[in-house]
Design a protein around this nucleic acid. Structure first.
Lengths: 155, 155
DNA sequence: TGCTTTTATCTGTTAAGACAACTATTCTGT
DNA sequence: ACAGAATAGTTGTCTTAACAGATAAAAGCA
C-alpha cells in the first residue's frame, strides 16, 4: 500500500529535486507516526499537544512553569497556550496560580489526577514508539537521529 | 540556539528510548521545514494544504480529479476537502463540475489563474527546499530519504 | 518620581481539522 | 426491476491553530 501510494504520487507530482523528496518524505513520515500517537491518546481524550504539555509540567515539578516556559519546550511552536491550559484546568489535570512576586506570570502545575493519567500512559506510549520502529535496527535508528539533527542544524 | 533548546528539552523531558528520540526529532524537523514553507506561501495567502491541492490538480491535468482522488494524493490525510475546495473556488483558483456520467462525482480542475500562481511559485518553492538542506551532502540526503521510507515501510 | 519599553498573558476573530450524520447516486445480487 | 449495500460528496458541530490586538505588570531610565 505504501509502495502503491508512492508510485501514484510520483506520477501526479514528480519530485523536482532530492531536497523536495526529503521534505515530502519527512512530512509524510512524521504524519504517519503522529497518527499512531493520536490513536493511542484518543481514549484519554488528549491531543498530542495536550499530552506534551502534561509531560512538560511533570518535568517542571513542584515549582511549576510559566506559559512562556511551556511554549519554549513544546515540540511544535506557537499553539494557543492560554486556552490549551484553560481546557486542561477545566478537566482538573492542572492548576494555575498567579505568581505573587511577578504578577504578570502564571505558574502552572500538574494535579495528582494529571500525574496519574501520565503514569498510566507511560508504558503504552513507550511501547508504541518501540513498535512503530520495531522493524529497524538500532544502528539505522541512530543514523536517522543524527541525520535529522543535522537537517535542523542549519541557520 | 538549537543546541541550547535541545539540552533544555533533555532536562525537562529525558528521552526514554531511542525510538522516542526518533519520534521527537522527526516531528520537530518536519515542523521546522514546514514553517519555512508556510512563510514562503504566506504572501500568496495559501496554506501548505491548499498549495498541495493546486499541485495535485496541475498533475491531474485537463481531465480533472475527484475529491477522493485529491484525498489520496495529499501528503497528510483527511482534511476537509469539500470546504478547502469551496474556498479555492471562491478565489477562482479552481473550478468544480459534476461528472455527467457518474453524477455522484465532482471533478475539479485548475483555472488559468490557479495555474499562474503555481508557476510563479515553482522556482521559489524549489529554492526553499534546496536552501533548507544546502548544508547537507547529497549522499546524506539520499541516506535520509531511504531511512524515512524504511520507517514507513512497516505494516 | 514619571514616562517609555518590554514582558507575560489574555481575548477576539477567522480558518482548519476531526468526526459523525445526511443526501444523492450507483452497484449488486436476486 | 428492486431492495440493500457501497460510494461520493456535503453539512453541522466542536475543538484547535494562526494572527492580531488588548491589558496588565515590571523594568529601564531621564
Amino acid at each position: 500500500m505504501g509502495g502503491k501510494l508512492l508510485k501514484e504520487i510520483h506520477k501526479v507530482r514528480p519530485f523536482d529535486c532530492l531536497q523536495q523528496e526529503v521534505f515530502l518524505n519527512l512530512i509524510r513520515t512524521a504524519d504517519h507516526l503522529m497518527r499512531g500517537f493520536e490513536v493511542l491518546l484518543k481514549p484519554y481524550n488528549l491531543s498530542p499537544t495536550q499530552y506534551n504539555i502534561l509531560r512538560i509540567l511533570r518535568g517542571a515539578g513542584d515549582c511549576g512553569i510559566t506559559c512562556k516556559g511551556i511554549g519554549e519546550h513544546l515540540i511544535t511552536r506557537d499553539p494557543d497556550i492560554t486556552r490549551l491550559l484553560d481546557r486542561l484546568e477545566a478537566r482538573n489535570l492542572i492548576t494555575r496560580q498567579r505568581d505573587t512576586k511577578d504578577r504578570r506570570v502564571v505558574s502552572t502545575r500538574l494535579t495528582p489526577e494529571g500525574a496519574k493519567i501520565l503514569r498510566e500512559l507511560d508504558k503504552p506510549v513507550m511501547e508504541m514508539h518501540r513498535s512503530q520502529l520495531a522493524h529497524m535496527s538500532e544502528m539505522k535508528i541512530t543514523q536517522l537521529i543524527d541525520l535529522l539533527e543535522e537537517v535542523r542544524s542549519a541557520e
